[in-house]
Design a protein around this nucleic acid. Sequence first.
DNA 1: ATAGATGCAAATGTTTTGCAGGAAA
DNA 2: TTTCCTGCAAAACATTTGCATCTAT
Lengths: 142, 142
Amino acid sequence: MAYEVERAELARYLEGHKLKQTTQRDLILEAFLDAKGHITAEEVHQRVRAKSGSIGYTTVYRTLKLLVEAGLAQERHFGDGVARYEVENEHHDHLVCLSCGKIVEFECDVIEERQEEIAALHKFELMRHRHELYGHCESCRS
Amino acid sequence: MAYEVERAELARYLEGHKLKQTTQRDLILEAFLDAKGHITAEEVHQRVRAKSGSIGYTTVYRTLKLLVEAGLAQERHFGDGVARYEVENEHHDHLVCLSCGKIVEFECDVIEERQEEIAALHKFELMRHRHELYGHCESCRS
DNA sequence: ATAGATGCAAATGTTTTGCAGGAAA
DNA sequence: TTTCCTGCAAAACATTTGCATCTAT
């Protein structure tokens, strides 16, 4: 039994909102966490099916939305028309390949600092940001 | 007759690719430029119709895609399922106020440099980027 | 017992494509 | 007169919703 912390967090959210714990929700949470980053609703659906028979797309979509509301997941759009979900954890930005869609995460303290400076310069209280680099990865360039 | 520069740029692209100049393409370019900012395909369609009778959605979509290829426009997705197009004028990044929606543009050489370094580190050829800072502006904080 | 969850099918909304007729080169 | 464009209708997608049925509480 893995992901005790996340399960507990979801359970807490469900209780607090008078929602029910179901096998499907558990399976989807597990599949989502197993993916470790940037997974689409369809991939979640496939993973759950692979492990334990049938589940509806509808439920996958609804549950992913629920995970976002519960603060466990974050929804992202990279411009190809498909939503991707990732674990809502510490901060990182993305490098996206325009040819194959590969996504690499990066972090840069220098940039983070500069962001704070820019915000301060314009007297903004910085809440969050979004920073994506788009290009062609090594294998797509050859 | 406005937007001579942009018209010429598009004409150059069309010629170079053995494509044709048409009334529709001209009208769409104009409507797009008139908008001065993030415009959706539907808004372009409406604007063109308002000015000069009928035009098909298909043509709007195809032409906006053409403008992107010609380097005149940039396609953006903000996560609501609708693509938005904006004028492709170099690097300006955005500082967005979460309360009043005010948008301030900024530029930072240090960040630009770091971006190149990060891309190089991952062996990506950097094509473009997207960098948005979200927070609360001075007047909204009081 | 009952509020809530599921999953199919159908609807939605955006964008793309096939194709016949039309316009630019 | 050939090549490319247009625009309708239909298709293709991802995602959402209606509803009858089922399940957790």
